[in-house]
Amino acid sequence: MARGEVLVNQELCKECSLCITACPHNVLRIGKSMNTKGYHPVEAFAPERCTGCTLCAVMCPDVVLTVRRKSPERK
């Protein structure tokens, strides 16, 4: 089970790939769909590998990505 999850605000993505190179677990790639600006937004093609480390979002210049992470187990 994935520990993290990345949500993509499709319309804001400019297909610059900075998030893809920032991801240590090779979760992201340029997707096939196109937004109204003519860019192909990134997609998480291997979501199960996501740890929710946020490094992709840290490098995104357009604040496209929201990251969620499993909270630590509680008793």
Binding site: G4, E5, E11, L12, G52, T54, A57, V58, P61, D62, V63, L65, T66, V67, R68, R69, K70, S71
Partner: peptide, 17 residues
């Protein structure tokens, strides 16, 4: 799941140019 990264309040929703 808990949100650990999101758009800061101090930025508007306007897409940057």
């Amino acid at each position: 799941m808990k949100t650990v990264f999101e758009r800061p309040q101090a930025l508007t929703e306007v897409p940057m140019h």
